[in-house]
């Protein structure tokens, strides 16, 4: 045991720069440095037990906050699907326009909030919204972007409405659609990303 280290404690090497920053934050909060770092480490153990990395949890939280402030609500999926199925045959075009409009609005909000980082943040939202989507793949060749979304649970109606929503968002983000395909649970869209 190195001299000066109490029993039951261990020495761990960490980047010097981070220690200075943490020390400053602990002082600002009026918390002893040891308690401050111990609490942070305890949360990592908790996150590890959830099978997640702390970084992923913070990313997820950030996305959820954007959804919250941008007027998203949490609703039972089964009820939403039931409603869409009920309305779709009578109100197909109307619903598509409502979804597209909501997408345009969200795209404008992302633009206002994240500026040039809006597109990347939108992709982050899609990727972290694993609730509804099984897989989100983004590939970029030169200035053509290909986005593929897949889900085992999306109905045909919901897939099409999601595509309308995507179109709306992309339009507000200044992304030009080159090609689009969809079938139940699968969307593939190719865009030209503006400079």
């Amino acid at each position: 045991m190195p001299k000066g280290v109490a029993r039951g404690r261990k020495l761990i090497a960490v980047p010097s720069e981070l220690i200075s920053e943490l020390n400053e934050l602990a002082n600002r909060d009026g918390v002893p440095f040891y308690s401050y770092t111990t609490e942070a480490l305890e949360h990592v153990v908790k996150a590890g037990r959830m099978g997640r990395k702390l970084r992923e949890i913070l990313d997820f939280y950030e996305v959820m906050e954007v959804r919250k402030v941008s007027g998203h609500v949490i609703v039972p999926q089964e009820t939403l699907n039931w409603l869409i199925k009920k309305l779709y045959s009578k109100e197909k075009e109307n619903l598509q326009e409502v979804w597209r409009h909501a997408g345009r609005w969200f795209g404008r909000l992302l633009n206002a909030k994240f500026g040039s980082g809006a597109f990347d943040f939108f992709i982050k939202i899609l990727k972290l919204s694993g609730w509804e989507l099984g897989e989100v793949v983004l590939e970029q060749n030169a200035n053509v972007v290909s986005l593929r979304l897949t889900s085992f649970t999306l109905s045909e109606e919901n897939t099409f409405l999601l595509m309308c929503y995507l179109e709306g968002v992309m339009e507000s983000l200044g992304v030009k659609i080159e090609n689009k395909e969809h079938m139940r649970g699968v969307i593939k869209v190719e865009f030209k990303k503006n400079a």
């Binding site: 280290v5 404690r9 261990k10 020495l11 761990i12 960490v14 220690i19 770092t37 480490l41």
Partner: peptide, 10 residues
């Protein structure tokens, strides 16, 4: 990277 030593609960 410059390193510092942190004391943590064992």
């Amino acid at each position: 990277v410059k390193r510092k030593i942190l004391v943590a609960d064992e």
